[in-house]
């Protein structure tokens, strides 16, 4: 695993809040949080989150890095932006959550095989980097099978009717994936972006 934040093995890390502030998209506003609970109260899947955003922010401040990065909360986010627009302190909650979720996977606090979102995101990113576009057939299929062959068959069968409906109404096509033409150009840009990002993260 690529360790990007300073002390990936310590349970408590009192510099964690500072690291989040400097490195997570939106993290610079986290110090504005006044623990009012509007984010967790507005969230449609809050009851399926172990901690919820408000508690996560408090724990980041307390340096509870391990406990934070083992949370399931990042992966229940539906990106509805209720938390972002309602936060009375203009904390971009959703962005910070997604950043912490990526960190949790990157540093190995959570195993990809246990995190559906991470497997889905990988399938998605594979399609984007390969074709320039999301292939709505290959991404779900790859995702279904990312949890193992049996699970893949089960999930595919469960979605068969939906897929047939999509095919019948010509919302899913048969044949090669749709592609961005100049994929070399896109590849060069993305590789550079990945490089710049690694440079920033390494320099933190």
């Amino acid at each position: 695993m690529n360790a990007v934040s300073p002390t990936p093995t310590k349970k408590y890390d009192l510099s964690f809040a500072r690291w989040v502030r400097d490195n997570i998209d939106g993290g610079d506003r986290m110090n504005m949080c006044m623990q009012c609970g509007v984010c967790s109260g507005s969230c449609p899947l809050s009851d399926q989150m172990d901690l919820g955003p408000r508690k996560i922010f408090m724990m980041v401040r307390a340096g509870m890095k391990e406990a934070v990065l083992k949370s399931n909360s990042f992966f229940q986010c539906v990106s509805c932006y209720n938390c972002v627009v309602r936060c009375p302190r203009e904390v971009p909650v959703k962005y910070i959550l997604h950043g912490l979720g990526r960190l949790a996977i990157q540093e190995g606090y959570q195993d990809k095989k246990d995190v559906a979102n991470a497997r889905f995101a990988d399938a998605f990113w594979w399609s984007v980097t390969t074709f320039g576009k999301t292939d709505e057939r290959l991404v779900p299929t790859l995702y279904f099978f990312s949890a193992g062959f049996v699970e893949g068959i089960k999930k595919s069968l469960a979605n068969l009717k939906i897929a047939l409906g999509m095919l019948k109404t010509k919302r899913m096509h048969i044949g090669m994936p749709h592609k961005t033409k100049n994929r070399g150009e896109l590849k060069a840009i993305l590789e550079k972006a990945v490089e710049i990002q690694a440079r920033h993260e390494g320099g933190a």
Binding site: G37, V38, S40, G41, S42, R54, N82, R86, P88
Partner: peptide, 28 residues
């Protein structure tokens, strides 16, 4: 109750229902 309510909805009888997160117990 230490919580800034997220929203107030009407139930089926039109009574106000306050929704949010109790920040002490973490209950929604």
């Amino acid at each position: 109750i230490k919580s800034k309510p997220a929203r107030i909805e009407a139930d089926e009888n039109g009574n106000p229902v306050i929704c949010g997160e109790d920040t002490i117990s973490r209950d929604v």
